[in-house]
Simulated scan of single mutants.
Amino acid sequence: MTERHDLPDPARRAELAENLAKVEERIAAACAAAGRARDEVTLIVVTKTYPASDVRLLHELGVRNVAENRDQDAAPKAAACADLDLRWHFVGQLQTNKVRSVLGYADVVQSVDRMKLVTALSAGAVRAGREVGCLIQVALDADAGARGERGGVAPDGVAELAAAVEASQGLRLDGLMTVAPLAGAYAGRQRAAFGRLLEISSGLRVRHPAANMVSAGMSADLEEAVAAGATHVRVGTAVLGVRPRLG
């Protein structure tokens, strides 16, 4: 996989097509191993640090779900691709002062982790006259009542936050998201971490049956996520290549 990202479009398109095919093979094999249908898992390509030209090439190659984690990068990129039928996911830690901008393009915010953010998202969605999907980000490395190092609410806070989203105008409770923790009991145990997320999801769906989206797994651990039951995997490096350093 090349580390160059200034290739002319035909060469870059071929590179992306090859990488997408490899990721598709991995997802299909993981689904088969888990006894799941391939269409049970949606690929979200994480395009952070990459240009709008790559997003356009991915769209040509059939990608319809893309994710970003920094609004300052995502907003102009989404604007440049506004003519494409893409579903934009915001997956980074979101400050309330960025909510209005994020709601200008994001169809789903996967990183909802506190009441203040729910309030801001609801107000922004109502102001924009639209409905926005929300995933509760679960921090499996967080103690009761705390947030994780990479954002997210502790498992014991999911029910309260989910109820707040469900009751808020302009918001739709879609499910849960997690990032495999780097510390705590689940560090280095991705399959166990994702299995725990599915347990929390099962409990959530007792009260919120439609909240059946489970976003877990990235380039290095998508197989473990699929095995555990994830409905969406977020893959960046395996599709786009080694990320350029941010200045």
Results as ranks from 00 to 15, higher is better:
Asp6Met: 11
Asp9Ala: 15
Ala11Asn: 00
Arg12Val: 00
Arg13Asn: 13
Glu15Leu: 15
Ala17Gly: 11
Glu18Thr: 12
Asn19His: 14
Leu20Arg: 11
Lys22Ala: 15
Glu25Arg: 14
Glu25Tyr: 00
Cys31Ala: 15
Ala33Cys: 05
Ala34Ser: 13
Ala34Val: 02
Ala34His: 01
Ala34Trp: 00
Arg36Asp: 00
Glu40Arg: 11
Thr47His: 08
Thr47Pro: 03
Lys48Trp: 05
Tyr50Met: 14
Tyr50Arg: 14
Ala52Trp: 12
Arg56Gly: 05
Arg56Asp: 04
His59Pro: 01
Glu60Gln: 14
Asn65Arg: 10
Val66Pro: 12
Glu68Asn: 09
Asp71Ser: 12
Asp71Ile: 13
Asp73Gln: 15
Pro76Ala: 07
Ala82Ser: 14
His89Phe: 03
Gln93Val: 08
Asn97His: 11
Val99Arg: 10
Val99Asp: 08
Arg100Met: 08
Val102Lys: 06
Leu103Ser: 11
Tyr105His: 06
Ala106Cys: 09
Asp107Val: 00
Ser111Arg: 08
Val112Gly: 02
Arg114His: 10
Thr119Pro: 00
Ser122Arg: 07
Ser122His: 06
Gly124Ser: 10
Gly124Glu: 04
Val126Pro: 02
Arg130Thr: 06
Gly133Asp: 09
Cys134Val: 05
Cys134Asp: 07
Ile136Leu: 11
Val138Cys: 01
Ala139Gly: 09
Ala142Gln: 03
Ala146Thr: 08
Gly151Pro: 07
Val153Ala: 14
Ala154Val: 05
Asp156Cys: 08
Asp156Gln: 09
Gly157Glu: 05
Val158Tyr: 03
Glu160Lys: 10
Leu161Met: 04
Ala162Asn: 04
Ala164Thr: 05
Ser168Phe: 07
Ser168Trp: 03
Leu171Gly: 07
Leu171Ser: 06
Gly175Met: 04
Thr178Ile: 05
Leu182Gln: 13
Ala183Pro: 01
Gly184Asp: 06
Arg189Lys: 15
Arg189Thr: 02
Arg191Gly: 00
Arg191Ala: 14
Ala192Asn: 03
Gly195Cys: 00
Arg196Lys: 14
Leu198Asn: 00
Ser202Glu: 14
Val206Cys: 01
His208Cys: 05
Ala211Gln: 04
Asn212Ile: 00
Val214Asp: 00
Met218Tyr: 10
Glu223Leu: 02
Glu224Ser: 15
Ala225Pro: 05
Gly229His: 03
Val233His: 01
Arg234Cys: 07
Arg234Phe: 08
Thr237Glu: 13
Val239Met: 11
Gly241Phe: 13
Val242Ser: 14
Arg243Ala: 13
Pro244His: 10
